[in-house]
Design a protein around this nucleic acid. Sequence first.
DNA 1: TCGATTCCATGATTTTTATCATATTTTAAG
DNA 2: CTTAAAATATGATAAAAATCATGGAATCGA
Lengths: 144, 144
Amino acid sequence: MFSKTCEYGIRATIFIASESFQNNRVGLKDIAKKIDSPEAFTAKILQILSKNNIIHSIKGVGGGFEIPKETMSQIKLSQIVTALEGNQVFTGCGLGLSHCSEEHPCPVHDKFKFIRNELAAMLENTNLEELASGIKSGDTFLRY
Amino acid sequence: MFSKTCEYGIRATIFIASESFQNNRVGLKDIAKKIDSPEAFTAKILQILSKNNIIHSIKGVGGGFEIPKETMSQIKLSQIVTALEGNQVFTGCGLGLSHCSEEHPCPVHDKFKFIRNELAAMLENTNLEELASGIKSGDTFLRY
DNA sequence: TCGATTCCATGATTTTTATCATATTTTAAG
DNA sequence: CTTAAAATATGATAAAAATCATGGAATCGA
């Protein structure tokens, strides 16, 4: 469904958010360990997220990544996905046809549109706060 | 959403079906041209589909690919997807966690499950006959 | 039987994605 | 002001996906 980049990105963001909940700033090493992802690759992803103002980075000793509590409820999954893989998943044709459109639909256009809209709505309506609180309460998990 | 393999595979199958509607057997060259796909790559895909009894192949002069009219309504999109990319799309965790399950869910487990089920249902309920007839009637298109 | 046409099998190459490595910049602390 | 701990930037490598190429096997018509 999603690329590794996106999977790691979402996992990392949720982890950072769950730590920021209790005012914990977390570093790259810790993040990679906790979400079980390759460190250097994760670093690249975090940079992109940082540039897109989804997470906040602090350099230097005692630095790390965090997400201000106030913004947490306003960051949606859709923003993470868009930052990491563009909006192809929201707009692209299910069969990969570049000229597929409402007026010139592919055979599965309508059926795919429905699914895509559901997916888009889900990503749009899911914010970081609820995901992080699931982790905190122990109802959901990012690893073993 | 899907791999190129799957996109080409679905497009090719629909095209073969639409031709089989009027008892036309079609060859590799023609298929690749009509669905705008790389010929050799398409050949490999067709072989897989053939082995999975989704399409029927005939070797030799005048040979090609076809789909018996009788079976057309019974071949579902889900079969094509499963043959070409396995059932990861139906069962895999949205965040790529191998240990994600109902009892040990990832943060987006339920939300993704809903989408995946919708997708699975759509693929399960869409058969080749309806897709091919859309092409035939000129309501839908596989290319310009 | 022979030759042309077509699918089939397999492996090589290219492109994309994922991963790794190294050097740089920033910053807190002593 | 120096040092160590962090993020950042950039490029190299590895793995996977997509594409290409080549020879083989089956089938039909002459």
